[in-house]
Amino acid sequence: MKRINLKTLSRSGLDEWILSVGEKKFRAAQLWSWMYQKNETDFTRMTDLARDFRGKLEETAEAGTLVLENLRVSAASGTRKYLWRLEDGLRVESVFIPDGVRRTVCVSSQVGCAMGCTFCATGTMGFVRNLSAFEILEQFLGVWRDVGEKPTNIVVMGMGEPFLNYDAVIRAMTILNHQEGSAMGARKITLSTSGIVPQILRFAEEKQPFQLAISLNASSDAQRSEIMPVNRT
């Protein structure tokens, strides 16, 4: 039987799963804290859980991770570039950028990208697929485990156009923002878009609490149209 990846569940979804396996609801809060506040992936180290419950988790569930295929570190700046392998064998990149007390993780939202910006290497790949919310948030958690302390900021501006994978990106950032877990402040989470207008309007209408950055990359509208096809739509 395939084990359920608990990181694919929302906070309320974890409550429902816990009840479905015959456990008390408070166990969900404990698990959520271990996965997102303590960033633990090994059920055997979740020491305030009853031993029989930990055994049940080992048999039926997992706190999923991505496979780190390659890591490059800049000796000059301390920047760390991660290449993650996904379950289907595809790969995405994340970057950790230390800058004094600010420690930023840049995460990807898609494999490839459909936007075709001329200055972007990912644009030459074309679009392959969207990442799931789990695949997005686990980039942040994986970097955190590697560097040994929680990063201070998240920017969704790696591979892909975040607003063409809007629902998964918002779900991932909402989980990382949850106060019982990683508790990343909404003002420390930035979504960067090349300018997908319908989703920008949706973002505003929903009153999402996160920061929004619009990538201009040019000093004039004409120049932007030359290098960013989205500007011509």
Rank of each mutant, 00 (worst) to 15 (best):
A76R: 13
S94H: 01
G181Y: 07
G195L: 12
P209S: 08
N5K: 10
Q37V: 04
Q223A: 09
G100H: 09
M159L: 06
V156F: 09
Y166L: 07
L141E: 00
I18Q: 09
T8S: 14
Q211L: 06
L176A: 01
S74M: 07
G112T: 02
G142Q: 07
K7S: 11
A213L: 00
R11W: 12
D221E: 14
A61K: 06
L6F: 08
F127G: 00
M157H: 12
V143N: 02
I154G: 02
I4M: 13
R54P: 04
E16V: 10
M159Q: 04
L176M: 03
N5R: 06
A168V: 02
T193G: 11
P198R: 07
L66W: 00
E135F: 14
T47G: 11
W17C: 06
S108N: 04
V155E: 05
T79P: 08
W34H: 02
R102L: 10
A114L: 04
G116K: 03
F127E: 00
N39G: 14
A218W: 10
R54W: 12
V111R: 03
V155P: 04
S220L: 00
I214F: 01
R129V: 10
E87M: 00
R11L: 08
V101I: 14
I136G: 01
G195T: 07
A183W: 08
F140I: 08
R54G: 03
Q37Y: 08
L141Y: 00
P162N: 09
E226C: 00
V105P: 03
R91L: 01
L9N: 07
S109A: 08
R102Y: 04
G148P: 09
R232A: 05
R224A: 13
K25P: 05
V21L: 12
N5E: 06
F140E: 02
I214L: 14
T44S: 15
N165K: 09
I227V: 08
R45W: 06
F127L: 15
G78T: 07
W32N: 05
E87N: 12
S182Q: 10
M159F: 04
V67S: 13
A183P: 11
M173K: 01
I97Y: 03
G185Y: 04
R202E: 08
A121F: 01
V128H: 13
E135T: 10
G112S: 09
R145N: 13
L19Y: 02
Q223V: 13
E226Q: 07
A222L: 13
G89H: 06
R45F: 02
K2Y: 03
S194E: 01
S33D: 12
K188P: 04
E138L: 12
L201M: 14
V92P: 06
E180S: 08
S194W: 03
P198C: 03
K25R: 15
G22E: 04
E23Y: 04
W34R: 12
F163T: 15
F53L: 14
G148T: 03
V73N: 05
V105T: 14
R224S: 08
V169S: 00
V143L: 14
A50I: 05
G64S: 11
V105D: 09
R51S: 15
H178D: 15
A63D: 02
E161F: 09
S77E: 07
T65N: 11
S225D: 15
F210H: 05
S132F: 00
G89Y: 01
E23C: 09
T124D: 04
L68P: 01
I189M: 12
V92G: 11
G126P: 13
